[in-house]
């Protein structure tokens, strides 16, 4: 028997203590956020109760929960158009951004000519773009989709260009030594390299696309989360207003989680930046 195999006094106890410590840490990491949320809700309920806030100014969390249940069909039927607009806009805007980034990377002169235009268009706030697009595209879903698409376009374009260009210079030299064609360099090197960059943009776009669709619905719309928000506000129905906002943000979170899941499936290597 070697020395290493001998049971060393204290080691097993230390290991057990270490494991117990780790388990406690894990529990803490799970329970603390939950405690934070419950604390926030309790504070909200207490404030409304103590300050005697009238229901047309702010509801109690119980009133909101009640409306979430009783008005569930109404909330869902209004979420559907918003979700369609946000997802369609997300797809169109991101596809356009990916195509534009690909063109920019291959034709530098186009990038130099049009990148400033894109930057200027991006400086116009969404709330200012919305009326312009409503005039251009009418009162249907189209202007909302356009707003969601526009809002996704810029971050994805910027990240995608960076991802396509920030290729390891030695990998680029390798492709040249191998006499690889431009198409091969694009698909085997640049596109793969851009995926982590693309996904960080898509995660931003997932929440901003929903914002875009809602803002679009504020202007001349009768259905959708945005329209419901406006209606609830004018009716001083604060419980419905809050319930609508919660439904909208739940959808945002689900959209974000779906993209995060897709990222885990697609980007299975560690991006160089995290080394």
């Amino acid at each position: 028997m070697t020395d290493a195999a001998l049971p060393l006094p204290g080691v097993a106890e230390a290991e057990a203590a270490f494991r117990a410590d780790q388990a406690r840490e894990r529990m803490k990491r799970r329970l603390l956020p939950l405690a934070g949320i419950l604390g926030f809700l309790a504070l909200w309920a207490a404030l409304v109760y103590v300050l005697q806030v009238p229901p047309f100014i702010a509801p109690s969390p119980f009133a909101v929960a009640h409306r979430l249940v009783t008005d569930f069909p109404k909330l869902i039927s209004n979420l559907a158009p918003t979700a369609i607009e946000a997802i369609t806009g997300f797809l169109l805007g991101n596809i356009a951004a990916i195509v534009t980034a690909t063109v920019f990377v291959h034709k530098k002169s186009l990038e130099q000519a049009f990148f400033p235009v894109v930057v200027i268009l991006n400086t116009i706030p969404v709330v200012a773009k919305a009326p312009i697009l409503v005039l251009l595209l009418g009162n249907g879903m189209e202007p909302k989709i356009a707003i969601a698409a526009l809002i996704c376009f810029f971050p994805t374009l910027v990240n995608m260009v960076r991802g396509l260009e920030s290729v390891n210079p030695q990998a680029m030299e390798l492709m040249r030594v191998l006499s690889a064609s431009k198409t091969e360099i694009f698909f085997k090197l640049r596109l793969q390299n851009s995926l982590p960059y693309l996904f960080s943009a898509l995660k931003i776009a997932a929440s901003t696309a929903v914002i875009g669709a809602i803002v679009g619905e504020w202007i001349g719309s009768t259905v959708g989360i945005g329209a419901l928000i406006i209606q609830a506000m004018y009716a001083f129905d604060s419980a419905l207003l809050y319930a609508t906002v919660i439904v909208g943000s739940c959808f945002s979170v689900l959209f974000f989680l779906a993209i995060t899941l897709a990222e885990r499936l697609v980007v299975r290597w560690q991006p160089p930046a995290s080394h």
Binding site: N168, Q170, A171, E173, L174, M175, V177, L178, S179, A180, S181, E184, K188, L189, Q192, L195, V267, R268, W269, Q270, P271, P272
Partner: peptide, 26 residues
């Protein structure tokens, strides 16, 4: 054949897929 100072492997490819790369391009 060229060997670089930094190995310049493609991080999304496994070891064997990296070795196969020169057979796939050019």
């Amino acid at each position: 054949g060229f060997v670089f100072q930094d190995a310049a492997l493609l991080p999304w490819r496994t070891a064997i897929q990296n070795v196969q790369l020169p057979l796939e391009v050019g």
